[in-house]
Amino acid sequence: MLWLKYALALTTLVGFWGAGLGLSPFIPLPASLLGLLLLLLGLVWLKRIPSALLRVSQFVLGHMLILFVPATMGILLFAEKLADNLLWLVLSIMLSTLVSLGVTAWICQRQWQNHAHANTDNEHVKR
């Protein structure tokens, strides 16, 4: 019975992806993104997450990395083609990724701290 529920949850994910694919000729956004937004709308309407859907999505997202493996092997293809500029490309990607990771996290931490202070201040005022 539990397996049936999990199968149903998996079908739901594929179904919403299919719905996104059906919508993509009309809305110029990637199909998987449209499917994601549709499912989000569905959950907002439902006001809760069905437990089987939660379990299945946690499993799928926890092991999502394996789905990237075939595409990742493309690294071997382009390493030869881009040999002349490879070093610069690698440098560009590493530098931009590390700097923006640090900056984004730093700004976010500051924002949340300010917000937390503002919240506690407000509560003091209320009291």
Binding site: L13, G35, L61, M64, L67
Partner: peptide, 19 residues
């Protein structure tokens, strides 16, 4: 190709933690 195709439905699953 099946694994790469599954990336689509897996991306849809991101709606759940987002919600």
């Amino acid at each position: 190709g099946l694994l790469t195709w599954l990336l689509g439905p897996a991306t849809v699953a991101l709606a759940i933690p987002l919600y």
